[in-house]
Design a binder for these strands. Structure first.
Length: 899
RNA sequence: GCCGCGGUAGCCCAACGGCAGAGGCAGCCGAUUCAAGCUCGGCUCAGUGCGGGUUCGAAUCCCGCCCGCGGUACCA
């Protein structure tokens, strides 16, 4: 195919429009009812205009110049044939941008649209700057919804999953993200999960995958165990049902062994990751430093060892082995009754605020490590089995919970530190503040052999077993003789059997357990009869290493090609929702550290920079099907077009803030895009594109390697340094004529946009682009000929800038300006510093800090000149200036005495 | 309760400690139109949640409150 400016001319455009209108009309009725409902739910101001735009774009016969359907239809195949977004591995500096991959539940939704619009703008900015950019795509394809859908429909989870992936892939294409499709992966493909299993076995070898019997979170609806992180306020993160406890033997990944590193390495993320995410991780890990003290039958952990002399009793978690072993025969009936009561409580009731303390005396005593005093041991549910040693020393004078308990059960209260008269502390702590006393006490305890310094974490090991089908099988075999035997690497993957429909129904054990000829295998070690592990892995395991697989998705000799990972990783920019702040992002960081220790990668942090986008909400509330306040992405795109939706997402506000769809206006975006297209038409018609560049009519396959339509912009350097590091080069073919005022505006705004993009303040960058469009319009309406070189320059800059946000419209502009397709790689224009610099500025003249006058002064005015000018001003007349603050060239403040 | 983030025109949002308004939405007026819509032009609208402080000068920095959002909650 050959694309010349002729073929992209007006006649062709009109032809396209006719075609599209016919197509749109036939598919319209179904869309319309949905759209009408959505409009009804919205604030009145949005709805009215929306209806107008709709009829304008689709039915008014081309009155509106903005025919997004035609543009989408025209440019998508052109782009694909040009291969614009293949990371080429050339010598150019490289960058990688990874969007958190999608879970394939139906089509893409508004949240995806926002994340991908933001990430894509950054990726496209880098591409324009001449970086070799890896922007991959994949699917988080295992998981419960597919399984539940399969049960309902008597189907296999793969059918639902891959059908949805197909739909989403199509939407991705339509959404015009700058994706390199060669990277595509699905975590449910055996060629992927083979390596998830392989990695699990490496964890196992290192002792980082362990089987433990423990009280674990159990979701009674999904009938599977859950990781701590998947329990939100005592409820299942997925289905919302109250989580109960079960005593089970399960696989854990020992993330707690990395707690300290996970904490320490945050130093290198500081400033590059959003502060709230780092705070949330820190809180989740929950490091607390203190001491272990020996009270005879057991140790307790405390962060306040300095209060040990106020300890009057001990409390152990009732649902711990320790409590059972300590209980005396006499107290056994009371204890057993209490334990069964506690076991029956959900975490929700157990941790409910303001409830009366409960507990039972165990009929046993411990011994105070310093005084030797016998202390009664109680079991109470306010002590949790999993934290510290599952036992505490109770210091009722110091701790509210201990005090409440002491008062309920009439136990003594003994004041310490801070209440001098009654202080029970010994001389060696006298007069010390808390910190010193803590250190001193630990030293004393160590000297006497009754304690030691210690640290505990809130973080628990990561429970990865799931009693469900649609996940990655755990690649071990249980053998009566050999115990747990890993499946040998050369027998991976352990492929899921073919189960569908009712066979997948949850039944407390994994559906895999019922497939006897899958379960029963020969032990790889002794050859005797053995059984496969029938659980599958938490899908967060799949997503803990996928970014590495992107670099070499078909690699067969390992989870990833080390050379490719060396080239592209770690990820320069990761983009996704803040809802993954503790789960996914903690697990990926953990995985990366383990892979580093395994020698598989040479970095400890997976993502250099993180952008967490806010949510798209409607009328202040999160969208949900049950509330019926869903905004459908497909309908938005059908109504306004891809570009307007993308622009609205980016322009709505700072990326990390929520977007209330009721507050924003895709219709406004449509108007703006229509304006810039008309601008491009006028200018394109009035002036030819620079001859030596515009005539290059056959871009061909080499297009992606350079800049296809150079126009006024030179090709970017291909040296190994980032392009931005290069000074302005005299080869730049900036025009030498044209309206100077407009040119200054163009270059000033271009400089601002460049800086804003680097700071990722995308909403403000868009505002500046709008300003540029307004400036050109005003200039032309004010008498500047559309053929003026400054107008063309401005329009071309605008097209390149908009290519980051609204690819179709930008490409259309580019065509109307007479260029061959490929604005996405036109190259980022460099602002001319001479034009950016202001010659004169308005200087504010303040009196006592209040604005009193404005002076137009040269931008490089000296302090002396400005001082003289200020004092000569009428506002200074008759005043006694006691102080003069001169900050050339922007402000002068006269501090005067009297009125 | 604790931790974090945020309160600027009717709404969404800008503003190196230096002229509170860049951009958009909505509204109003006008041009265009047979008319409506679209389009174009113009206009109105806040003294920055409240109270102190620092400073020549505070939306911006500090302290104390109020409100909203998010996270977390017997973690010893």
């Amino acid at each position: 195919m050959v694309f010349t400016s002729d073929r992209l001319g007006l006649a062709d455009r009109l032809g396209c429009q006719r075609h599209v209108r016919a197509g749109a009309a036939s598919g319209r009725s179904t869309v319309h009812t949905h759209a009408a409902r959505v409009r009804g739910a919205r604030a009145a101001h949005g709805g009215k205009t929306q209806a107008r735009i709709r009829s304008g774009a689709l039915a008014s016969g081309g009155m509106s110049d903005y025919d997004f359907e035609a543009m989408q239809r025209r440019w998508q195949p052109v782009w694909e044939s040009l291969g614009l977004f293949t990371a080429d591995g050339s010598g150019k500096p490289r960058r990688s941008l990874v969007d958190m991959f999608a879970y394939p539940s139906g089509d893409l939704h508004m949240g995806h649209a926002e994340a991908y619009a933001l990430g894509d703008a950054v990726a496209r900015f880098w591409i324009q700057q001449g970086y070799d950019v890896l922007h991959p795509v994949g699917w988080d394809a295992f998981g419960l919804p597919a399984e539940n859908a399969a049960i309902r429909r008597g189907a296999h989870p793969a059918e639902w999953t891959y059908a949805n992936i197909g739909t989403q892939a199509e939407s991705f294409r339509r959404y015009a993200t700058s994706i390199d499709w060669r990277t595509r992966l699905h975590t449910s493909d055996p060629s992927y999960y083979r390596w998830t299993q392989w990695l699990f076995l490496r964890f196992l070898e290192r002792g980082l995958a362990v089987r433990k019997r423990a009280a674990v979170n159990w979701c009674p609806v999904d009938r599977t165990v859950l990781a701590n992180e998947q329990v939100v306020a005592g409820r299942c993160e997925r289905c919302g049902s109250a989580v109960t406890k079960r005593e089970l033997t399960q696989w854990f990944l020992t993330i707690t062994a990395y707690a300290e590193q996970l904490l320490d390495d945050m130093a290198e993320l500081e400033g590059h990751w959003p502060a709230p995410v780092l705070t949330m991780q820190r809180n989740w890990i929950g490091r607390s430093a203190g001491a272990y003290l020996d009270f005879g039958p057991f140790e307790v952990f405390t962060t306040r060892p300095d209060t040990v002399f106020g300890a009057t009793f001990l409390v152990v978690a009732p649902d711990s082995a320790l409590a059972g072993s300590l209980c005396s025969a006499g107290q056994r009936p009371a204890f057993d009754a209490y334990v069964s009561r506690v076991r029956g409580e959900s975490d929700i009731t157990r941790t409910a605020a303001g409830r009366a303390p409960t507990g039972v005396f165990l009929g046993a005593h411990g011994r105070h490590p310093f005084t030797g005093e016998p202390l009664p041991i109680w079991a109470a549910d306010y002590v949790l089995p999993g934290h510290g040693t599952g036992a505490i020393m109770a210091v009722p004078a110091h701790d509210e919970r201990d005090l409440a308990f002491a008062q309920t059960f009439d136990l003594p209260v003994r004041p310490v530190a801070g209440t001098r008269d009654t202080d029970a502390s010994p001389d060696f702590l006298a007069g010390m503040d808390r910190e010193a006393a803590t250190a001193r006490l630990i030293a004393e305890a160590e000297a006497r052999g009754v304690g030691r310094a210690g640290v505990t974490y809130r973080l628990r090991d990561w429970l990865v077993s799931r009693q469900r089908f649609w996940g990655c099988p755990i690649p071990v075999v249980h053998c009566a003789n050999c115990g747990i035997v890993p499946v040998p690497d050369d027998q991976l993957p352990v492929v899921l059997p073919d189960l569908r429909g009712e066979a997948l129904a949850p039944q407390d054990v994994s559906p895999l357990a019922t497939v006897r000829d899958w379960v029963e295998v020969d032990c790889p070690r002794c050859g005797g009869p053995a059984e496969r592990d029938t659980d599958t892995m938490d899908t967060f395991v799949d997503s803990s290493w996928y970014f590495l697989r992107y670099c070499s998705p078909a690699y067969g000799k390992g989870p990833f090609d080390p050379d490719a990972v060396g080239r592209w990783m770690p990820v320069d920019q990761y983009v996704g929702g803040a809802e993954h702040a503790v789960m996914h992002l903690l697990y990926v960081r953990f995985f990366t550290k383990v892979l580093r220790d395994l020698g598989l990668v040479d970095f400890a942090e997976p993502f250099r920079r993180l952008m967490t986008q806010g949510q798209v909400v409607l009328n202040g509330a999160a969208m949900s099907k049950s509330k019926g306040n869903m905004v459908d992405l497909g309908e938005q795109i059908d109504t306004y077009g891809v570009d307007a939706v993308r622009l609205t997402m980016v322009f709505a506000g700072p990326p990390e803030e929520d977007i209330d769809w009721a507050d924003v206006s895709p219709a406004g975006s449509v108007r703006f895009l229509g304006r810039v297209l008309r601008l491009a038409s006028e200018i394109g018609a009035a002036s030819p594109a620079a001859a030596d560049h515009a005539q290059r009519s056959t871009p061909g396959p080499t297009l992606h390697r350079g800049s296809p339509a150079t126009s006024h912009f030179t090709e970017l350097s291909r040296s190994s340094e980032p392009p931005s590091a290069h000074p302005v080069d005299s080869r730049e073919l900036w025009i030498t004529s044209g309206d100077p005022g407009l040119r200054r505006t163009t270059h000033r705004l271009l400089a601002a946009i460049t800086e804003l993009m680097e700071e990722q303040r995308l909403n403000v960058a868009v505002a500046r682009a709008m300003e540029l469009a307004n400036a050109v319009r005003r200039a032309i309406d004010g008498g500047l000929p559309a053929g003026d070189p400054a107008a063309r320059e401005a329009a071309e800059v605008l097209a390149v800038v908009l290519s980051l946000f609204t690819p179709y419209t930008a490409e259309e502009m580019w065509a109307r300006l007479g260029h061959p397709p490929g604005v996405a790689r036109a190259g980022w224009p460099r602002a001319d510093p001479a034009l950016v610099a202001e010659t004169t500025v308005i200087c504010a003249l303040q009196v006592n800090g209040k604005l009193r006058d404005r002076l137009e002064v040269p931008a490089d005015i000296t302090t002396d000149d400005l001082t003289a000018l200020a004092l000569a001003s009428p506002v200074a007349a008759g005043r006694t200036v006691t102080r003069l603050v001169v900050r050339p060239p922007h402000v002068v403040n006269l501090v005067v005495s009297g009125p």
